[in-house]
């Protein structure tokens, strides 16, 4: 784990250390919470053969849409791609392997990894094709499907505020998958609009304690692609 005193990094240095073929969690539900600056740095950095885990595929031309269009993504684990026609085309053409999970199960699989569990038991999807082939176990006389935890090498998350130690505060609906992913990956790289000295964040307002966070980069609000569209996905 990175020492508390060594977490603040230059954005290019932070993403340059991500290996080729890495499995990467990316925060965000649509645009809010998507770490756009980290994704742009990753695009520039050039790694390919990536497996991405994100709720959605953003939209064509922004966020992970850019990485998919540049052919850097081999596999995407997601809940839906409805607003990214180029991602759907890549899937249909066989250029992008896509695994779909119901949104709440995806969140919980990530949460489980972050909590140090191997998985959880659920009845979601029983009687539908989502549960086909899923292992079951009987507990208290009821059948439950086994959902394994979902791990990653790296998580890229977006926070409103951070401090140098890596404590994070999210804002409004930009929270979504970020606090879950910030606990679930081996290396967690957080971008934040505001980077404070330790002690500046109200201690009872911190969403992700710094122990989970490996690196922090400060990004300019103005460079965010969020808000350039008429809607927020």
């Amino acid at each position: 784990m990175t020492l508390l005193t060594e977490k603040v990094r230059d954005i290019q240095a932070a993403v340059a250390a991500i290996p080729e073929g890495a499995t990467i969690m990316v925060g965000g539900f649509g645009s809010p919470g998507t770490p756009f600056a980290l994704l742009d740095a990753l695009l520039e950095s050039g790694q390919g053969g990536l497996t991405l885990i994100k709720n959605d595929a953003n939209e064509p031309g922004i966020g992970i849409g850019k990485l998919i269009e540049a052919g850097r993504v081999t596999r995407l684990i997601t809940s839906h791609l409805g607003l990214n026609r180029t991602a759907i085309e890549a899937m249909n053409a066989g250029r992008l392997e896509v695994s779909f999970h119901p949104q709440g199960l995806l969140a919980e699989k990530i949460r489980c990894a972050g909590a140090g569990h191997g998985g959880f038991l659920t009845d979601i999807g029983q009687g539908t094709e989502i549960a086909a082939g899923r292992r079951e176990v009987e507990v208290d006389g009821r059948p439950w499907g086994i959902e394994p935890a979902l791990h990653a090498d790296v998580a890229l998350v977006h926070a409103e505020r951070a401090d140098r130690y890596g404590n994070l505060i999210y804002r409004a609906t930009a929270s979504n998958f970020n606090p879950l992913m910030a606990m679930a990956a081996e290396r967690v790289i957080a971008q934040a609009y505001r980077l404070d000295a330790p002690g500046e964040l109200p201690i009872d307002a911190i969403h992700t304690p710094c122990a989970f966070v490996s690196q922090v980069v400060q990004v300019d609000r103005a460079t965010s692609e969020q808000g350039v569209r008429p809607h927020g996905l």
Partner: peptide, 25 residues
């Protein structure tokens, strides 16, 4: 619009008294 504030359909929304925000889990 507050660009951190959307509903699940992607519309920029706001909140009413008594509202809360939370993570996906």
């Amino acid at each position: 619009p507050d660009h951190d504030m959307i509903d699940s359909g992607g519309a920029y929304i706001t909140t009413r008294p008594g509202a809360s925000v939370f993570d996906s889990a």
